[in-house]
Design a protein around this nucleic acid. Structure first.
Lengths: 222, 222
DNA sequence: ACCTGAACACCGTTCAAGT
DNA sequence: ACCTGAACACCGTTCAAGT
């Protein structure tokens, strides 16, 4: 009882689950997913690479823990208002949570967390939908549709964001020129007309458009 | 003029772009993306790993060529009928093209092809939408929404398909049990109700549901 | 021109041994 | 109990040298 309540006193443990995940997310933001290696993470924690395996059985487990932690920011209390606006707010929160970390969507897409943040988010979305009158099957499938769209969109958005040459997938600003040249080289009248919309950087509007389609589709179904 | 028109006569070249991409897709189907290394591909072609770099500047270029080739199967002539059914048919063709190869969605999501199959597919979708009366911006954004949903969905579907233990992301059939346990351990009334839909393997229905939402959303907008 | 051989600078993961 | 040191079995990529 008389021991200090702050366990950081005394010889601080160099490694623990939460601190390691936080450091990994910092490293992700600084250098991207491709540069996030167990060795570099160990370095950042002042430890040898092998020591990480006392806390994470595999690198995949680490990535899953990172994905779970990201979703903490999307797992807030549901806003009030109409079901359609509450659903949209949750989808926006998910996109924002992934955008908050470099390669966030790639990390999320490559894992399958069953942690409280991930399940809590799903629970919130399902609650909004079931309260709105959708049955179990429709609510479940609507959640999947919204989540899959959001992940697919954010994957694309973050690929377009990163500077060319970094990470896989030669997306990025330089990609716009490559795409323009490729479209110009062939006979793509429709693509030529639509090209300015693609190369334009207004991903907020793109996301809102797709989200609107899903919500309106759900409204038509109710 | 008198040389044989079949260049396969004489000493056959061990390497060429198209044959290498085909072999890489075969290897992908057999062993999955994580087992697709430049060394193993070189082995399958009867060549040293370094030799591949005469045809592909990086492994990323190889993956992009693979993605481009996959989409050949989605780039057929547009069917006739109503715009909504033509659009749905194109989305289904894309999903099928990705499903046709193990980890197909992961390969596709990690690349940004500007080849004729990829651009041709986009051109087809845009043509259907613009012919239906959508303006350039709406057509472009509708294409993105449908493509992003399709990729997100198929990513999820293929992750759930693969046996546990293989590839990253401990999805797979075993994942259903993990998810069930996690849901049972917490207080998730909505998730508990919806769980059978998630663990059920009817991905066709899941895809059709999301696709329907998007199409109905577009109909409401026209 | 096309490919080999060998190297460079890394990886994830394991595990006996130290403290 | 927690971490080190060192190894194992690999990677993607480069490049002089061969044919």
């Amino acid at each position: 009882m008389s021991v200090p309540s702050t366990p950081t006193r005394g010889r601080p443990a160099r490694l623990d689950h939460a601190r390691t995940v936080r450091t990994a997310l910092d490293l992700l933001d600084e250098s991207g997913l491709d540069a996030l290696t167990m060795r570099r993470l160990a370095d950042a924690m002042g430890v040898q690479a092998g020591a990480l395996y006392r806390y994470f059985a595999t690198k995949q487990d680490l990535l899953t823990a990172m994905a779970e932690r990201m979703l903490a920011d999307a797992d807030g209390p549901a806003t009030d208002g109409e079901w359609s606006e509450r659903l949209a707010a949750l989808a926006r929160a998910m996109r924002t949570a992934l955008l908050d970390h470099r390669d966030g969507a790639r990390v999320y897409a490559g894992t399958h967390s069953t942690g409280p943040n991930t399940l809590g988010f799903a629970e919130n979305v399902l609650g909004v939908l079931r309260d709105a009158g959708f049955d179990d099957a429709d609510a479940a499938r609507a959640l999947m549709a919204v989540a899959n769209f959001t992940v697919g969109h954010t994957l694309e958005e973050q690929a377009a964001l990163q500077p060319a040459g970094e990470g896989p997938g030669d997306a990025g600003p330089a990609d716009a020129g490559v795409l323009r040249d490729a479209v110009a080289a062939g006979r793509y009248p429709h693509l030529t007309a639509a090209l300015p919309v693609f190369t334009g950087p207004d991903y907020d509007a793109h996301f809102e458009f797709g989200l609107r389609l899903l919500v309106d589709g759900l409204r038509a179904r109710r």
